[in-house]
């Protein structure tokens, strides 16, 4: 039953982008006589400026995250947190991924791959990990790109709100996996 839904959804997903790429110009051309080629090029010009504008913000965030990852600070944090989390029923194997998820997309994918290789895709540990990975985004990267693209440097409550949501997502991943699968 779930297999059918998942299969169906990814089947539908295949057609979304081609449909948009053809459907939007079709609507514009057929109903509003928009000169689609000219307008496309006009809009596309911004692609370069925006991409270049985010470079300094990305360098700032990704360098700090990269240094943090390489230093092994995460392992020290892990050692300190493990007893507490063990006490509340949060599986320690999933903690590195939960901490890595907001920091680095490639880093957390690497950790998820390790979990799957070590415990098997069938294990609860891997399923919790995959749920965590799939249910969250790389908070610091998104922040750098989105705010950087418009030159916003004062992020106000964006970081605390984002990290709080990440924590809730990680706990929810453990809770629902244990409830529904484990």
């Amino acid at each position: 039953m779930i297999e059918v839904v998942v299969g169906g959804l990814s089947e539908v997903a295949k057609y979304i982008i081609p449909t948009l790429l053809v459907g939007i110009p079709f609507y514009a051309l057929a109903f509003h006589k928009v000169p689609v080629y000219e307008v496309f090029v006009e809009g596309a010009k911004d692609g370069f400026t925006i991409a270049v504008r985010i470079i300094p913000y990305l360098v700032a965030i990704l360098v700090a995250v990269g240094m943090f990852r390489a230093s092994g600070a995460l392992d020290l944090l892990l050692g300190a947190l493990a007893p507490v989390l063990d006490f509340v029923g949060f599986p320690p194997e999933n903690l590195p991924l939960a901490l890595m998820r907001p920091l680095s997309g490639s880093g957390s994918l690497g950790l998820l791959t390790d979990l799957v290789n070590e415990h098997g895709a069938d294990s609860l540990t891997a399923k919790i990990g995959a749920t965590m990975y799939g249910s969250s985004e790389t908070t610091f990267y998104v922040l750098a790109v989105y705010f950087g693209s418009v030159g916003v440097v004062r992020s106000r409550h964006a970081v605390p709100a984002g990290l709080f949501a990440d924590a809730v997502g990680a706990i929810a991943a453990v809770f629902f996996c244990k409830l529904l699968i484990g």
């Binding site: 998942v6 895709a121 995959a130 799939g134 249910s135 969250s136 949501a165 809730v168 629902f176």
Partner: peptide
């Protein structure tokens, strides 16, 4: 990565992501 077990985490992922979005 998950292969055949991917469908099992479909629902847990939707539930977890809903929780995190509401929290956000």
């Amino acid at each position: 990565l998950m292969g055949a077990t991917a469908s099992e985490i479909f629902i847990t992922t939707i539930l977890a992501t809903s929780c995190s979005t509401i929290a956000a």
